[in-house]
Amino acid sequence: METLVEIHDVRKVYKRDQFEIPVLNGITLGVPRGDFLALMGPSGSGKTTLLNLIAGIDRPTSGRILVDGQEVSSYSETALASWRARHVGFIFQMYNLIPVLNAAENVELPLLLTKLNRKQRKQHVENALAIVGLADRMTHYPRQLSGGQEQRVAIARAIVTDPTILVADEPTGDLDAKNADETLDLLQRLNAEFEKTIVMVTHDPKAAGRAKHALHLDKGVLAEGQYGYEAEPAVVRT
């Protein structure tokens, strides 16, 4: 299976005042196209940082990251923004919908950066909301939706541009069991039915169990014995 995300010896060090805090210490791995990967680990293990690097909202201190053959770690801020708009769909723990926009307007946000006209954008928004089962909630504002519905709107926003990869940071962290289940069902469906590559950070072993694969990080390195995938080619390189 083709490797979509390639990470080569990536290190990330944060500077806080005079202190240097290493977060990732030489991560090397690959994520095949069409995979549903869960990143697990205790707080401070570096899983969200790794997700941010894959999504192009942060840059490694050293090392290379390639997504779909493009070395995103070398992109400028502006180029990265354009790349994210085309290739990355984000799903956050707190949904992060814009409260002053209704569901359809929230989903439309990434499309405003494209050349699609109003009618085409409307069509895409309707499709995305239909996929997540909220076609009848288009004009509802976030405050008028339940947490589960908000997360589904956020997922619709993430998929509306048909991105190359979906990144989800604790997508069920703020949901009750039922809504968490529904959200994970939806992610599984996006992976299976629409062949979306998904990288998900989670604390929850049950959520991780819904992914095809799970990797554990601890103190900025991949835990031993967690490098291999069943999928070919083996995507973890050391």
Partner: peptide
């Protein structure tokens, strides 16, 4: 701040 960060994550350039 968070909403602006979300917009930027979605690909909205600083300009």
């Amino acid at each position: 701040v968070t909403e602006i960060a979300v917009l930027k994550a979605l690909g909205y350039r600083p300009g």
